[in-house]
Nucleic acid binder design. Structure first.
Lengths: 197, 197
DNA sequence: CGCGGGTTTGATGATGCTCAAGCCCGGTGG
DNA sequence: CCACCGGGCTTGAGCATCATCAAACCCGCG
């Protein structure tokens, strides 16, 4: 159950975890099952949990005035789900997060998360996470500003090929900031190009 | 010289700075002047400095195959300039950073930045910075995926009105992921709407 | 068999880009 | 003092890209 979380921490920290620390971590991360289509967070609520995904797939999205969903983030195993701003500031979130597949998570509350600050390996891990998040954000922002729809798809294919296997195309399209029809046509184009070469 | 940096740290941390810590900080942050159009970082180089802006304005951008500049970030006083990925991982950067106005910065090298980890107030400050960066990234990503050009401009106007005063429109346009012509027309539209109401 | 979710296709139109020209304004130098 | 220049902004015409809407298709499943 907790294995993948401990591996995750080990991979990102130099300091090893003591017995006691392992116990503390086990005591604050509560396992939960989230069934397909169930919400982890609904817009308007404060994000109660930061959730480490053991198994499954989740999506974070905004619903606009017209009722259209815009995918902000897609999450798979060993990713964290939750709206960071809402969670850390304890303010209402503008986003929904729900399970796309039946998902097993380890949930952590804001107050519990503070008790973890006494664990050096955890602090190091958090720093790594934040770094990686900011690297990824910058890349994605760059892509979104300066690449065409086709280039953005190519980049995704290259950077997160798992997404294409686990999420349907209309979610991928939304994540890339285009419609499902556009993505469908782009894919057709790509196949055509490969035929030629 | 260092006042604004110390204020910045105080605003973001609970622990106060000791005399010694103040001295350490002063010793590792080297003041530099960067003249208008001078580079802090050029694409292909490793980002040597993280720079705290005391006074002035900088821009971070990518140059595409066609030679067009795409603005990734705009920075003013009390912001940090530098490519985080290149700086922390010490890998070549894909971005340029240069001064838009004559700028005074306090520069910090990667090795010096590690010595600061002994200062609790600094560590707290860094965490705040990372948080804020990730909140802002998420908002911007959301805007970029799900808002129209006009809505994006409105959001910028609301969130960073200083930008409109300090940077010319063609940079703002690029930052928002549109051309200068489009931005010009959008502004015209907005004025027209205000006439009506 | 029929239904639901997902994908594809086509027609049409809006949005935003490209290219080209002109304007405005604050220097700079003759 | 004026002419000119460069940088930035605006405007227009035509075009590419992408969105919208509607219909059809595909396929796994009850």
């Amino acid at each position: 159950m907790y294995d993948s979380l401990f591996t995750y921490i080990k991979d990102r920290s130099k300091t090893p975890l003591s017995e006691k620390e392992v116990e503390l971590i086990k005591s604050v991360f509560i396992p939960k099952k989230i069934r397909k289509k169930q919400y982890l967070l609904q817009a308007g609520e404060v994000c109660k949990y930061s959730a480490f995904i053991i198994k499954g797939a989740m999506r974070q999205y905004r619903v606009d005035e017209k009722g259209l969903e815009h995918i902000i983030r897609l999450n798979l195993e060993t990713w964290w789900a939750g709206d960071r701003e809402s969670f850390t500031m304890q303010v209402p979130s503008a986003y929904n997060i729900d399970a796309w597949e039946d998902t097993d998570v380890l949930t952590l509350t804001k107050t519990d998360s503070e008790t973890l600050n006494s664990i050096p390996a955890w602090v190091e891990t958090r720093i790594r996470m934040d770094e990686n998040y900011s690297f990824a954000s910058q890349k994605r922002m760059n892509a979104s500003i300066s690449l065409t729809a086709e280039q953005r798809y190519a980049e995704l294919q290259q950077q997160y090929p798992e997404f294409l296997l686990r999420f349907p195309q209309h979610l991928i399209a939304s994540y890339l900031g285009m419609t499902k029809e556009t993505l469908s046509r782009i894919r057709k184009q790509i196949v055509k190009k490969q035929m030629v070469s």
